[in-house]
Amino acid sequence: MIITTLSSREFNQDTSRAKKAASEGPVFITDRGRPAHVLLSIEEYRRLTGGRGNIANLLAMPGLSDIEMEIPPRTERAGAVDLF
């Protein structure tokens, strides 16, 4: 695995280079010399996340209506809050 580091300016000026590098390994994008973002290929992202879907897809899964969930009762707060 090859790790590539690009400044934000380099990333903005040559996005295709960053995309090509992401196919070989993670691309760290820095802001003022500090890592701020990581660019990954979609395959690597799916591998890392275990292929989990988004919340909308997960909620739409068949059989979810059979799951029972207990929600504890809401408790009152101890005192009023003065916002002024």
Rank of each mutant, 00 (worst) to 15 (best):
A60M: 14
G50W: 10
P35Y: 10
S65H: 15
R52M: 09
V38R: 00
E44L: 00
L40C: 09
N54Y: 02
L59R: 13
L39Q: 04
G51Y: 13
G63H: 14
R52S: 12
A60S: 15
S65A: 15
M61S: 14
T30E: 15
E43V: 03
F28L: 14
E44S: 07
L64G: 10
I55N: 01
E43F: 04
N57V: 12
P35K: 03
L58C: 05
N57I: 04
I29A: 07
S65F: 13
G50N: 10
T49L: 07
N57L: 05
N57F: 06
E44F: 08
L40G: 03
R32D: 15
G33F: 04
T49I: 02
P26L: 02
L48I: 10
A56H: 03
G33C: 05
T30I: 08
L58H: 10
G33P: 03
A56T: 11
I55R: 01
R52W: 01
L64V: 14
V38H: 01
I29S: 04
N57M: 11
G25R: 05
L58M: 13
I55T: 09
D31G: 00
P62D: 15
N57C: 02
L64S: 13
M61Q: 15
G63C: 08
I55F: 06
P26E: 01
R32N: 13
S65P: 00
I42T: 03
S65N: 14
T49H: 09
D31F: 06
N57T: 12
H37L: 07
A60E: 14
G51N: 12
P35H: 06
G63M: 12
R32F: 10
L39D: 05
R47C: 02
H37R: 13
E43T: 07
I42C: 03
A36P: 01
A36M: 12
G63D: 15
A36Y: 08
F28H: 03
L40M: 11
N54G: 09
I55V: 10
R52F: 10
G50H: 10
I55W: 02
G25P: 02
I29Q: 04
S41C: 10
L48N: 07
R47N: 13
G53M: 08
N57R: 14
L48S: 09
G53Y: 09
